[in-house]
Design a protein around this nucleic acid. Structure first.
Lengths: 202, 202
DNA sequence: TTACACATGTAACACGTTACATGATTTT
DNA sequence: AAAATCATGTAACGTGTTACATGTGTAA
């Protein structure tokens, strides 16, 4: 369902064709919400059928530029304010870490080095974009400010993962176990018990 | 494809039934790799057909406990060392942030407060688990050490998101724009240009 | 004129969720 | 005796990817 609103939101900025939107997903949204052209074209048709968008103009090579309608803008605002946020995350590299114990130490070390490098590079890319925005390269339109916030999430997320991968390298290379202590604070009642149970060796 | 290996990896720890595995996904993997029972049962059948797992024992109420086979263990190691990591991330809350400019300031502030609280709570839960592990509550089996690394990722990820949401609150509440400067460092050649282009106002 | 980028779409498949369906054992 | 939990599965649907298919305009 999110792709639908992603398209609606992008079209709220300015009219665009399926091709334009595909480029934008590839170039700037690939890391937080990937989408390929077949899905985008399909969703655009459905949005047009629903009256949330309409054809703005047609160009050469069958190019169709869509524009958001008032109904579409209303639908987008409804989503933003009324639909509960979906916090689902599927992060394969973290899932993998659950099975590090099955890897040879050498393989694991190489793996973690590559992971750290990848995340660090991604963080750098986001930092570049942030710097460009802070320099004012893109003006100060409202949607540019939102993008700056999105980019900040990218920086922090990838930086956190890079740090984690580096930490994991030292944590798993040690003779047996030199995990840093985590300060515990007040115990949580409900979910923690379940989690603790779940995380046990049984 | 990842679910397949998640199941294989969990069965590498110890034999378990579809029901057991479903519990584990609900209780401890829900935040990093959610999976519901229909998918799990289906995948277990396929793994058994492929000879990666086999029935260890059958219990009351049709309970079927599976055990990993040597072929399954080999397949798991192949995945860990040879299959490229899938870095795809789909994080709806971050996608949403791209459209914050369409929200009323009051709605946005409430939204960000809730987001921050949610992430902070999740981070706390992971910290509790980490503390329990560091206390040695679960022993020091190899797979427990891996889990400790996984939990660390949870802590860092949710903490980063909580900090981000709090930062976004002040960043967007300001009269117009008081984004902190990001230090730029050396520019990246290839991907950054594309990204910068993509992130433009056009 | 040949190659490349533009531009859209369909079909088949893989992955994931929700709803439906069933029945056995244990606890209250 | 009723309710809760254990335990497995199917069917329909929604979402996302890959491969296939087609044709136009522009630049080398």
């Amino acid at each position: 369902m999110s792709l639908r609103y992603a398209l609606l939101g992008l079209l709220a900025e300015q009219p665009a064709s399926g091709y334009d939107l595909t480029q934008r997903f590839e170039q700037q949204l690939a890391t937080i919400w990937p989408a390929k052209h077949p899905q985008i074209y399909g969703e655009l048709s459905r949005l047009a059928d629903a009256g949330s968008i309409e054809i703005d103009s047609e160009g050469p090579r069958g190019r169709k530029v869509y524009r958001i309608t008032d109904a579409g803008r209303a639908e987008m605002r409804r989503w933003l304010t009324e639909e509960p946020v979906d916090h689902t995350m599927r992060i394969e590299p973290i899932l993998r870490s659950l099975f590090y114990w099955l890897m040879e130490p050498d393989d694991l070390e190489r793996h973690l080095e590559r992971e750290a490098a990848y995340y660090r590079e991604q963080a750098e890319v986001f930092k570049q974009v942030a710097a460009a925005k802070d320099r004012g390269d893109y003006g100060d339109a409202p949607h540019v400010k939102s993008m700056r916030i999105t980019v900040e999430a990218g920086i922090r997320l990838y930086e956190a993962l890079a740090d984690w991968a580096e930490w994991a390298e030292t944590a798993s290379s040690g003779r047996s176990c030199e995990m840093p202590r985590v300060d515990a604070g007040e115990p949580f009642a409900s979910r923690t018990d379940e989690l603790l149970k779940g995380f046990g060796t049984d």
